[in-house]
């Protein structure tokens, strides 16, 4: 009897061991499969985005010029310099903020207006949707060149034909009109995109609700204000988020349309950083600027999403 128990015990022990081993094997296998699926994405993501970002933070405390291997630690000097002795950078921030405000409002008003128009059962609505969206597929760089021609030659010839003084201004040569020039082109590019998002939202609004309101005698304006807009607030969150971040990071369109001129009056932060780093070869200073830029972009976008989300809940 005793031997039998022993044999049994040994058998159980062995089984337990192989169980543990099998469990461990399957755990290792699980980890390996996880790594095989997630690893490639993580590897590229870390090498291309996260590592350079961390490097950038540390460069921002140095006087690195991009060439010499000796990188000198300068502490907060770059940041102090930016805040006390760099009016060009400050001006570019002011320009970018003003531009963002104007661009966000105008392109969302146009985009939402177009969406309301095309939400009506028009016969040409599909063609028009395509037409309004076309500028969006062309990159900012080429658009800027296209509009350079429109502002310089196209507007002048329209001005000759119509005699309207609006067209006869030196559009890109004057600080005020150059600012609005960029806003116009940005709105021309982006409103079709916003329109597509707003149309999708408008189509999700329950028709019965609108019919009921109509029977109750609500006017179109009233329905828009009290039913439609509150229902599609999430679309406004998305569109504001997209336009804010696109407008604030403007580079391509800016560089090809005005190149930052006249007299640096339309130089965006992105252009300023680019020039500081790659034309003045002040990589350390450029890095410090880019970190500040990151902080501002991050604050802007989080605050914006949070406030609009809060409104959604209240509504």
């Amino acid at each position: 009897m005793r031997t039998e128990v022993d044999v049994d015990g040994a058998y159980m022990e062995k089984r337990k061991k192989s169980d543990v081993k099998a469990k461990r094997m399957s755990r290792i296998k699980k980890i390996l499969t996880y790594a095989a699926f997630v690893g490639p994405a993580l590897l590229f993501f870390l090498t291309i985005q996260i590592v350079p970002f961390i490097m950038g933070v540390s460069y921002s405390f140095t006087s690195w010029n991009g060439v010499s291997s000796a990188v000198e630690w300068v502490g907060l000097d770059n940041y102090i310099k930016i805040f006390t002795d760099d009016s060009k950078f400050f001006n570019s921030f002011v320009f970018t903020t003003k531009f963002m405000l104007a661009a966000v409002f105008i392109s969302n008003i146009i985009g939402f207006g177009l969406a309301l128009l095309l939400n009506i059962a028009l016969k040409t609505k599909n063609i028009l949707r395509t037409v309004f969206f076309i500028p969006n597929v062309i990159g900012g760089l080429l658009l800027g060149f296209i509009w350079q021609f429109i502002f310089i030659k196209g507007f002048a010839s329209v001005g000759n034909l119509t005699g309207l003084s609006f067209f006869n201004q030196p559009w890109l040569g004057d600080e005020v009109t150059a600012f609005w020039g960029i806003v116009i082109v940005f709105a021309w590019q982006i409103s079709g995109y916003m329109m597509v998002i707003y149309i999708a939202a408008l189509q999700s609004v329950d028709k019965n609700l609108l019919d009921a309101a109509k029977i109750d005698g609500a006017s179109s304006v009233r329905m828009l204000g009290s039913i439609i807009i509150p229902l599609i607030l999430p679309a406004f969150t998305i569109c504001f988020f997209l336009t804010i971040s696109m407008a604030f990071k403007i580079f391509d369109l800016n560089i090809s349309l005005t190149g930052g001129g006249p007299f640096n009056s339309t130089e965006s932060v992105a252009i300023n950083i680019y020039q500081e780093a790659f034309q003045n070869n002040r990589y350390g200073l450029g890095s410090a600027k880019s970190i500040l830029f990151f902080i501002v972009v991050a604050i802007f976008t989080t605050v914006q999403v949070m406030t609009t989300k809060k409104k959604e809940v209240e509504a």
Binding site: F45, V51, P52, Y59, S290, F293, V297, T301
Partner: peptide, 19 residues
């Protein structure tokens, strides 16, 4: 992965060229 969407390209490009 998702929060990195807030990082503007300008905040990465300088070290990226070096890297």
């Amino acid at each position: 992965f998702v929060s990195a969407m807030v990082i503007p390209f300008q905040a990465v490009m300088i070290p990226l060229v070096k890297l």
